[in-house]
Nucleic acid binder design. Structure first.
Lengths: 193, 193, 193, 193
DNA sequence: GATGAATGAGAGTTCATTCAT
DNA sequence: AATGAATGAACTCTCATTCAT
């Protein structure tokens, strides 16, 4: 029964969210350089509104994916705590990352772009995720479960790449990722208890 | 009295080759959607000439990379014949494929594109390379060197993806590919009861 | 219980003045078609406030320059009273007008604009200043110091024009104005004592 | 009866001329920053054609006025040769310049613009016309007909300014210019011999 | 066959103006 | 009264593609 006190303020917030949804959808369909006009139309706002909220395309892209990236970041330590082994935690974390990328079809493509607009996106991803991944790698290494010396940046980048084209008939992202994880593990006399 | 008919033919051929060289160069520099004009200018011809020889961009891209694809195709059986083991042949072949993609900066990116223009490129690649890869996989499987059930299309697609961003500082394509190959191999004598 | 009614009024007045200062500054920097937003930002108010006080840009411009125009208007009779001769008064008055325009860089440009927005500005200027100028011309004419028949509107317009570009290296506004004043004076047997 | 041999070439030339005419007309009506589309529409061509012929707006502006500027340049020496006195030549030349500006309503406005796009226009005008004007001034000075020390740049700039607003009801450009020329002449013991 | 001028759709971006709060 | 979010028209510029020569 309580009317929202600040209508315009609320609308603005609502708009921003509509914008993020619209942009996410547009990114999936046409890639991260979807025309500004398309995004505006999807969100039911004028183009000016986009520029007000996200002056630069990179701002929009980062905003679109920030939530998911952060939840991935948070998942790292949690998994390490709750999993039976560091290796299992690493595998689970990578799976979560893959699920994220695979759902947000088009994001992986965006990340690889070398256009200036996406540099900051790329940077943001790596800055946030690489340390988490590194932590998991380190723990698994310490536990003697994986071969030492794998660097997190290459792993993240590679996993990201493997998600490109997820959904294409005949391509099985998870299978490829599984291969990578298998490849990481120490082969010497493993788990023969 | 008439101009030698061969002349025209020769000119056309020459043009086509100049065009391919120019396109290859342009692709390296600006990606496979380099402006038509740039390519024409590099080749020293008018834009119309490009359209005459390659009505669609995909035609041009395919033509540019045909040689290398075909040599990859040819390498399959040869490696199988000359390598110490099918697994070694597979690894060597994948390496060759990776080398090809990595050199032709931008090609991997193009392949993943789901734009209509690149569909035929994608189709062509798969059509030619997947059977070869399948042959190698089959042989290695038969020899008991790799886990059975890996499908060639997924492998090709995945390897292709891993080549995206080759050259980015901090990303090591070969390392990721190595992981995949390691992941493929049967963990010899593990779990034997 | 009610807020003192004067309060609102005072705020509004204060806003209006801040607005005029901000607009004046913006006009100097970016000309009289400085973006509304810039002016609002300088004044620390919202754009809506500008529209409330000055519905049309011309209203704002007129308001900005009203003070100076009025002081020019007042100067006419005063100079006529205090100067050694009507011709001297005329020259002094024109000098004052020129000084005003030259200082307010951009105003001369605005005056000449035939855009609708500036029509009222133009009208205002002429309406106020032309009669004063006409009075001075008439007096000088009566005194036999200048050729008869010069019309004030043309003179004002012309002098205004000469102020355009004041400050451009190599252009000497005052020199041109001096030429005009010299051209006005009666040549007959001057000062051959 | 002879068909033009190069049709396309001819069309291109024709287009360029149509463009210049269209631009001139548009400049008169909306100033020199008339929308590209308007100019294209007037000329009956696509916007691309404008960009092909005149990559930058300044190029277009200069092209539009080049003919007239050059004929003004040529007129200087001719008038000096054919006029009864240097002073008469100067007056006639200024008249011609004024006639040019007055006809091309809007040009004077353009010249004063301090926008980057018009800098080159301004530069071009001054570069070509100032020397001619200087020559005439010098000759008149030598003949003792005008006061010494007037600099050509200021004079050109000022005369140009006086042409702004030509056609406005109540403003008489020629009268103002007449005043300036009168102001230039030596007043001492004038011709009463 | 080759050329390149012309076309025009389409994308980005700015900013005056309105209006709900 | 003041605010500033939203709108969308308007403008610039690029480039794939066509087609007359």
């Amino acid at each position: 029964m309580t009317e929202p006190p600040r209508k315009r303020r609320a609308d603005a917030k609502r708009n921003e969210e509509a914008l993020l949804d619209a942009a996410a959808a547009a990114f999936v369909e046409s890639g991260v350089d979807a025309p500004v006009r398309d995004i505006a139309a999807r969100a039911g706002v004028g183009v000016g509104t986009i520029y007000r909220h996200f002056p630069t395309r990179a701002d929009l892209i980062v905003a679109v994916y920030r939530h998911q990236v952060e939840s991935c970041v948070a998942a790292g330590p949690a998994l390490l705590r709750d999993s039976p082994s560091p290796h299992a935690a690493l595998a689970a974390w990578i799976d979560q990352f893959v699920d994220f990328l695979v759902t947000k079809h088009g994001l992986a493509e965006a990340m690889r772009s070398d256009q200036a607009a996406f540099q900051s996106l790329h940077a943001y991803f790596l800055e946030r995720l690489v340390p988490v991944c590194a932590g998991l790698l380190h723990a698994a290494e310490q536990a003697g479960e994986i071969k030492p010396g794998m660097d997190a940046l290459t792993l993240m980048h590679g996993i990201g790449n493997l998600c490109i084209g997820a959904g294409t008939p005949g391509y099985d992202t998870h299978r490829m990722v599984g291969l990578v994880i298998a490849g990481l593990t120490r082969e010497t006399a493993p788990r023969q208890h």
